[in-house]
Write a protein that binds this DNA or RNA. Structure first.
Lengths: 160, 160
DNA sequence: CTTGAAAGCGATAACAC
DNA sequence: GTGTTATCGCTTTCAAG
């Protein structure tokens, strides 16, 4: 089960995910509280794992990682050994930014960031040489309309 | 292309995206330099937009946002007016974490985070009542195998 | 590039409400 | 539990060697 999150926690989380460089004082002011209680709550949320990694979002395009693919994968193999190997391969490859196991006829979806189409092909060839895959469809992104890490906290149920 | 990124910049970016709460001193030590040059470079990278938002990653499951859908969208409409309205609708909805316009027969892909299947349906109904959509396939994630915001900086070209 | 220094902040404790 | 105040040492930021 989750953790008890009340309205104040939610405000703190919202302030933090919007800008994690804010000082304790600023967050306290924003949420209408003061330093100590805010600090205690942040510590608890961190310990509970609700607050995870603190990071900086980089501009992939500016860094020359100009191609983004969504990869739909079907497999005929469903034994534990194959799956374990497949997951390990995905986790080991840094160009795989997301990987999900799906319900339905498509088994997996990946999001892959690379320099260009050639780099994607190199990734693809390497992957299929490591594990057997039945069917792959690559969807090339033409335009990133939206990309956010901000969770919709308004929709989070309040802990009793 | 945008900015000159050298090996030192890349190390700094790697250190920062891995843990943005690190102090300047620590980063300087990690990358084998000292405070001021590191600080100057970070400032420039920020101004150039290479370094963007500083944030904290929250655990969606722990917050009760337990369902994640990838939504494949086909449309028959391609005029500017329709597209503008569609993009505005996506940007306005906080449960849409990602949206891409694609090449190929599928026109758009969305990543949507909600509490449960019912909340997804509410989102879906609201969306199709706002803009006309030809065909929608929702892929439900059963397991998040990997989800990272860390870009593969090893693969970033130097200079240029 | 390095030193250094002023201002600010994080992390906690003591105490009152 | 929350708010106030005060503390110490570290950090950011920037000027000048």
């Amino acid at each position: 089960m989750s953790v008890q999150i009340d309205a104040l926690d939610r405000k703190i989380l919202a302030a933090l995910q919007e800008d994690a460089s804010r000082s304790l004082d600023e967050i306290a002011r924003l949420v209408g509280s003061s330093k100590t209680p805010v600090w205690t709550r942040i510590r608890k949320l961190r310990e509970a794992g609700v607050i995870g990694r603190q990071t900086v979002l980089l501009d992939a395009e500016a860094l020359g990682l100009e191609a983004c693919f969504f990869v739909l994968i079907r497999t005929s193999e469903h034994e534990a050994g194959w799956q374990k190997k497949f997951l390990a391969a995905l986790r080991a490859r840094p160009e795989v930014l997301e990987a999900h196991r799906l319900a339905g006829e498509i088994d997996y979806i990946l999001k892959v960031r690379v320099r260009n189409a050639r780099a994607y092909d190199a990734f693809y060839q390497a992957l299929i040489s490591e594990v057997r895959i039945y069917n792959v469809t690559a969807l090339l992104s033409m335009e990133e309309i939206k990309a956010t890490t901000l969770l919709p906290l308004e929709q989070v149920p309040s802990g009793s």
